[in-house]
Design a protein around this nucleic acid. Sequence first.
DNA 1: ACTCCCGGATGACAGATGTCATGTGCGGGT
DNA 2: ACCCGCACATGACATCTGTCATCCGGGAGT
Lengths: 204, 204
Amino acid sequence: MSRTIKVLLAEDQSMVREALAALLGLEPDIDVVAQVARGDEVLAAVRGHDVDVALLDIEMPGATGIEAAAELHREFPELKLVILTTFGRPGYLRSAMEAGADAFLVKDAPAAQLAEAIRRVLTGERVIDPALAAAALAEGANPLTDREREVLRAAADGSTNADLATTLHLSHGTVRNYLSTAIQKLAARNRAEAVTIAREKGWL
Amino acid sequence: MSRTIKVLLAEDQSMVREALAALLGLEPDIDVVAQVARGDEVLAAVRGHDVDVALLDIEMPGATGIEAAAELHREFPELKLVILTTFGRPGYLRSAMEAGADAFLVKDAPAAQLAEAIRRVLTGERVIDPALAAAALAEGANPLTDREREVLRAAADGSTNADLATTLHLSHGTVRNYLSTAIQKLAARNRAEAVTIAREKGWL
DNA sequence: ACTCCCGGATGACAGATGTCATGTGCGGGT
DNA sequence: ACCCGCACATGACATCTGTCATCCGGGAGT
């Protein structure tokens, strides 16, 4: 007979986190042994708790679930990693997989899939929504260079070129050049549209 | 002795919705009698189910939880309305109250507050985070006129002035005038910053 | 009657933004 | 050695955006 599955839950919204814990608590073979609310608390929690599966939300303060997954994968290669996210953005799936994730679930999937996924990753399976996988493959990788992405991300809140130049320690013209190439790569007509497109693809 | 409290749960993300149902299921005096995933399904569900409290997420397809609350308040004035949202935006709180809500909870509050709030609204109490209430009062009401808000919302995805003019059936110059006044009312330096500010205040 | 405010519009102007050509230097492949 | 992509820069140009003054008509207060 097999032991119960020990799960770490990382999710910043208390109500959602505790609700998920309640949900998993209904499963007789699953035990939530630790909960954290920040991405940068995940590593310490796993070090201190003997965990089989880490359930990680992407959008968290401190560090994203994907960054946490990458760290965990380096330090605990046998630990199974399940990414749980609100947004089924193809770019997220891609980077989650590169970080060593074993499963990728969106929060609008039926709740039953959560326990199901936890059990399946422990058998060595990978759990990914096929439609999302297809979308991720179809659209290809992020075409932006590191710098272009940084500049676009910094421009996302409405900063002017002059602002960006000072905060990023770049020349006025260089900022415009990066934004211009980003706009063209994303087939947008201005920086705002470029931000929208990059966001929805998970490239920001 | 009092009967169990009958709750309707409206939340679009299945996993969160069913997790919240599991959480409330642990309370002996609370019974989740109906669940819906869209704002425009709320009214029909209440008509068909004899509900004491409606628990409404704001961000939903079909209609927002606030719109649903306003409808419910008109048709069932005795029904208690609890708004549950990811974003504690002061503007949301204000419109929720105007729609007749009895409680306003943010998802990063502790889970225990949920059942607590449900019980308290039934005694006639209003449940609102004091800090959020203060913020809502401090910043005052939405300064934008209907038209300014519409134009700003339409501009949020990166549309150009020419686009906005055609989709909103306005002159090129009028679009710019509305955006200009909106930018000044929000103390922004351009439309993108105005969108950011309006979003974070819940004014969009 | 008078005054606001709102929706809608025009024209002029200045500054911000996007594009393009072109240049440098660095590092990685072949 | 050569080429390429990337980071970073400059200058010129055209267009887009934001501001301002000014106008009209309608409704709501006073």
